[in-house]
Design a protein around this nucleic acid. Sequence first.
DNA 1: AACCAGGCGCATA
DNA 2: TATGCGCATGGT
Length: 275
Amino acid sequence: MNFQNEKIVTTLTKIHPLDLSLTLDCGQSFRWAESDDGRWHAVVKNKSVFAEIQGDDLLIYGDDDEAFWRAYFDLDRDYNAICNNLSSDKWLNKAIEAYPGIRILKQEPWETLCSFIISQNNNIPRIKGIISRLCCLLGDDLGDGDFTFPSAEVIAQKSVEDLTPLRAGFRAKYIIDAAKKVTSGEVSFKKIASASMDEARAELQKISGVGPKVAECALLYGFGRVEAFPVDVWVRRIMQELYPEGLPEVTQGVEGVAQQYLFHWRRNVENPFEV
DNA sequence: AACCAGGCGCATA
DNA sequence: TATGCGCATGGT
């Protein structure tokens, strides 16, 4: 454990609702893990950081950039208002009541894009493994077993063979294509940040290996676009079972938030549809 | 249009 | 211990 972490603390107030476990371990992020002392640990901003809820506050150890963390945890979006509104729908109400406090993270765009390329046709334990090996192989060593997420510039110089140790399978060539296009500016994060949803989707899908699902995940979890709506096998199931006519109108503009609650609920509740 | 690619976690047997 | 299933995208 790094003692420097204990000296640098950001205290974030007015955080409710926020459940760290649900938010950090619900499939939107792959690098946070619960440490022995019950805090959550990850490498973010190329620093080893710890997070915990203390009373009504969220404490970040290891970094003092308050504005960054407010954005990262989406603390200035009024989730009480959003969830109250979504709760007018019967099923969303059940989902939100079952797992309150899930928030959409705004993670670093490159890490998010690369992670969701790796996530395709894959399960969470293995996604975490591949990402962990990627950071270990090409990231900077921070000590204590922590590595930064390798930059697009570093990955762009690698070959598919170089990535063999990741055991990423056919995704290796996609990772490299993404790194090259991001590094060259052919795919511009700056452009995506200010573009319309459709333009942003198209920009991301210039990358080989980025289809609708991966693009939507990158926009939702890496660019703060809460109107993005990733449809994976679970969400497709939910749509068929509950919303064959499409999402209810209350989700307009916050489809991604609705998706996250429905996804978690459908995966974790035993009998979701019993009254 | 159906199939496979590179694996591997997981459930079931 | 073995067997089948699921998993997003691109290419055949």
